[in-house]
Design a protein around this nucleic acid. Structure first.
Length: 641
RNA sequence: GCCGGAGUAGCUCAGCUGGUAGAGCAGCUGAUUCGUAAUCAGCAGGUAGUGGGUUCAAAUCCCAUCUCCGGCUCCA
């Protein structure tokens, strides 16, 4: 029989050969790192005999599939360790999670007693024993009926529930040592392949992700084929932790959230507020340059507005309670769109006037459940960089194309060059006709195609009034954050009766596009802080230049330099404290100030400054005017280095 | 909202099985005028998240509550 390898080479093997044997024949090195195989596109265990001609690929940790198999097998090892220590534990599910930033696998377990992170050490120790024994993973298949009986008899209610929903005749089980678990497989050949692992955390999680079902214990972990990789991974996690915007926000004095004020409500300190102002000013200028007009709307309005829009039906639980005002109910606004709709409705609109592009940095309030609040990324009061485009159906596509361009321009300006684009379609609960939905979805698809943007379908993830394109940006750590959302809406225009007078003299329904590019200014700011690790590029840095005095004799000279920079619009601070220069430098470095100008007698007498760049160090004596020019150039071009 | 963990000075943290709260940094005062990541000395700073309870005695044990952290669920 002939096996064909990925490089198209063919080799003859006896029928019934296993991938493990094939790997060994190719080389002992490959045999050692082989984890599974792909035979005719199907992943199988290394000991699965191959009976006839096939395409074969030996899967190692280098392959994405190999990684998942490796991590998933570690989850099995963890589960077996847990059963050793807690015989009453019932297993639920334990997948690999390749897209998670910190963990690589988890297992959900039902346990009668609480589990804390202190218990992880014991589980790790037990896992080490199982790994040391280098137990082989073995596959067996049994008829579904038998499996159901087995799980029921053993009280394995979660496995029993899952297997009872399978439609196949048989189900596969995997064992290693005394452990047995239902699993599609494949698995690594033996437990000894796991050379390094760590259990990271314990958390609650609902069975099947349903908050009405029982809460199970979820243990997250990571594993690797080499010790070095674990070390690197843990260092990366450590690094990310130090870049956490909640930590940097405190260290750099950017913002705070205070109990006395309320959870999820942000106080922007001067240093954070200046960055926000720069972002917002940039945003406004660019919107004006790109055919938008700026509007403002109130923070509260009669609740009927949300009744009419339909938001109340869908999001009542996430809205703050209404407040009575002179016998009427008023609502703290959870979004801006109804206001913009009423600006539109303020007078009759002609087809000649469309499109209108109305933008607002609109602060909205949403009642987020207490457990979900998180720094700046999940808050109860936040500012959307919102806009609504009102256009004719024939203008829609062009507007969407413009929007996609405009969006990428913004994301690039802030240093985000990697994105994931999602197209979210009709959810289960929605308003409007199928025809309208299809039309809206088609318009979004068409725009994505014309821009040649790759996108993933996200079925059912649209908004109740329309489908949307979401853009997730990737930060410096490779984590994805949802920022941009672009939503086509034929439904609210219908509900609010917004129309334009056409060329033919009759009224036509207007099309609306809702969009936020940065999303929430709060969250975007948090992402930026982490992306830059607090090292803001010059144009955004709260303090761009710090002038550090060596001796106080040069006070007047330092003031003159400072004035020169300030009058050019540069944000400067002067450190005149009676401290050693090393102390001042250390502090300025800690505060991540991009430019330090050191001024002593030497500089004053020569009319120069010593420049020290953050994270780079001393770059020597320079004419202050040349460094000012360099700064102004960077600010003007919004240079990100 | 749910599960678990945690809340001690402005910040970072220490404080054994209950015995009356401590360090570094920051702050203030003074000395020092100093050249590329921390000068020295002194002073001040806490009703231990909050409210109850147990006890001769509570930061420490118990209950409630608030907030935060890790997740789950949710996210117009």
């Amino acid at each position: 029989m002939i096996l064909t390898f990925p490089d198209k080479t063919k080799r003859e093997f006896p029928s019934g050969v296993t991938p493990a044997e094939v790997a060994a024949i190719i080389g002992q090195g490959l045999k050692k790192v082989a984890l599974a195989a792909k035979v005719n596109g199907r992943l199988v265990d290394l000991d699965t005999p191959i009976q006839s001609d096939a395409d074969i690929k030996i899967i190692t940790y280098e392959d994405d599939e190999g990684k998942e198999i490796f991590w998933h097998s570690t989850a099995h090892i963890m589960a077996s360790a847990i059963l050793h220590l807690y015989p009453k534990a019932k297993l639920a599910i334990g997948p690999a999670i390749p897209n998670d930033f910190s963990a690589r696998f988890y297992y959900d377990i039902d346990l009668p007693q609480p589990l804390t992170e202190d218990d992880l050490g014991a589980i790790e120790a037990e896992m080490s024993k199982i790994i040391a024994k280098d137990l082989p993973f073995k596959r067996l298949e049994i008829p579904i009926e038998k499996a159901i009986k087995k799980f029921n008899d053993e009280g394995d209610i979660y496995k029993a529930e899952m297997v009872s929903e399978f439609e196949s005749e048989t189900v596969s089980l995997y064992t290693h040592g005394d452990f047995i678990d239902m699993c599609r497989g494949p698995h690594i050949p033996s437990t000894g392949k796991v050379k390094a692992f760590k259990l990271l955390s314990v958390a609650g999680s609902y069975w099947r992700g349903d908050e009405n079902k029982k809460m199970l214990w979820r243990i997250y972990g990571v594993s690797f084929p080499e010790k070095k990789m674990l070390k690197e991974h843990l260092e990366k996690l450590e690094q990310a932790k130090l870049c956490d915007h909640r930590i940097l926000g405190k260290a750099l004095d950017l913002f705070s959230i205070n109990d006395d004020i309320g959870p999820g409500l942000v106080l922007w300190h001067p240093k954070g507020a200046i960055v926000r102002n720069i972002i917002e000013n940039f945003w406004r200028e660019e919107h004006l340059k790109n055919g938008y007009e700026l509007v403002y709307s109130p923070h509260i309005a009669k609740i009927n507005l949300w009744h009419k829009s339909g938001h109340l039906d869908f999001y009542r639980d996430s809205m703050f309670d209404p407040m009575p005002v002179e016998g009427q109910q008023y609502q703290l606004k959870p979004m801006n769109c109804p206001f913009h709709i009423y600006i539109y409705k303020n007078k009759k609109r002609s087809y000649r006037d469309l499109p209108f592009r109305w933008a607002e940095l609109g602060t909205v309030y949403r009642f987020e459940r207490s457990g979900v609040l998180h720094g700046l990324s999940r808050v109860r009061g936040f500012t959307q960089d919102d806009a609504h485009v009102f256009c004719r159906p024939d203008q829609l596509e062009d507007e969407l194309l413009k929007l996609l361009d405009f969006n990428l321009f913004f994301l690039k300006a802030f240093g985000f060059n990697e994105y994931e684009t999602h197209l979210s379609t009709q959810p289960e609960k929605y308003v409007g006709s199928q025809e309208i939905w299809d039309k809206a979805t088609e318009a979004l698809k068409m725009a994505l195609r014309k821009k040649e943007l790759e996108y993933k379908m996200d079925p059912g993830a649209g908004v109740f009034y329309g489908p949307k394109i979401d853009v997730h940006i990737k930060d410096a750590f490779g984590r994805a954050w949802q920022c941009t959302t672009i939503q086509v809406d034929f439904n609210l225009p219908e509900k609010f009766g917004i129309t334009y007078t056409g060329e033919d003299g009759s009224e036509h329904q207007t099309v609306m596009v809702h969009r936020a590019l940065l999303g929430s200014i709060e969250r975007f700011f948090g992402v930026l802080v982490e992306h830059y690790a607090g090292n803001f590029p010059v144009w955004l840095a709260p303090v761009q230049v710090k002038i550090l005095l060596v001796v106080d004799e040069v006070n007047d000279y330092a003031d003159r330099i400072a004035d020169m920079f300030v009058s050019s619009g540069v944000r400067v601070e002067v450190d005149k404290r009676n401290q050693k220069i090393g102390y001042k430098i250390r502090e300025a470095e800690t505060l991540k100030i991009p430019y330090m100008l050191i001024v002593g007698k030497k500089e004053a007498s020569e009319g120069k400054v010593s420049v020290r760049k953050h994270r780079i160090g001393d770059i020597g004596l320079t004419d202050p005017r040349s460094i000012l020019a360099e700064l102004l150039q960077k600010i003007k071009t919004r240079s990100i280095d």
